[in-house]
Design a protein around this nucleic acid. Sequence first.
DNA 1: GCCAACGTTGGC
DNA 2: GCCAACGTTGGC
Length: 153
Amino acid sequence: MRYWLFKTEPDDYGINDLVQAAATPVPWDGIRNFQARNLLRDEVKKGDLAFIYHSSCKQIGVAGIAEVASDGYPDPDQFDAHSPYYDERAKQDDPRWFRVDVVLRAKFAEVIPLKVIKSDPRLTNMTLLRQGRLSIQPVTHDEYAVIVELAHD
DNA sequence: GCCAACGTTGGC
DNA sequence: GCCAACGTTGGC
């Protein structure tokens, strides 16, 4: 079982949308970056846990935890000419983009601000701080535990 | 809205 | 296969 951090812009899709979906798995789609794609295709597995991170918004930070509800599978939007995520280079037998399904595990009482994460010496090696722009990123077990602890303070 | 970081594309 | 140009991300 592994840990991840999934970024999203909450104005577009955020923790409250996951709350609304309740126990129904929702696709985590629209990932169009090769490094993130490789993780979704090869590494992220059903049963893993992922922090939901809100970016480009008023309250930037970790908003909660989701459980990964499927292994990676091709994102069908890449084949849909009417979708903004359409990719003419993608072939049915050779998909370029993948997604997983997720289900809400916990919404934190307060978003853990990026500022707090940056200022915690135990988190200085987080991928979030080292490679800020990656939309799907690994989290170590220790980092996971620290963030959960911060959420319960 | 600015701009730094950095991933992707495309010409050579 | 290099690298300049370009586009996007995302914090501030």
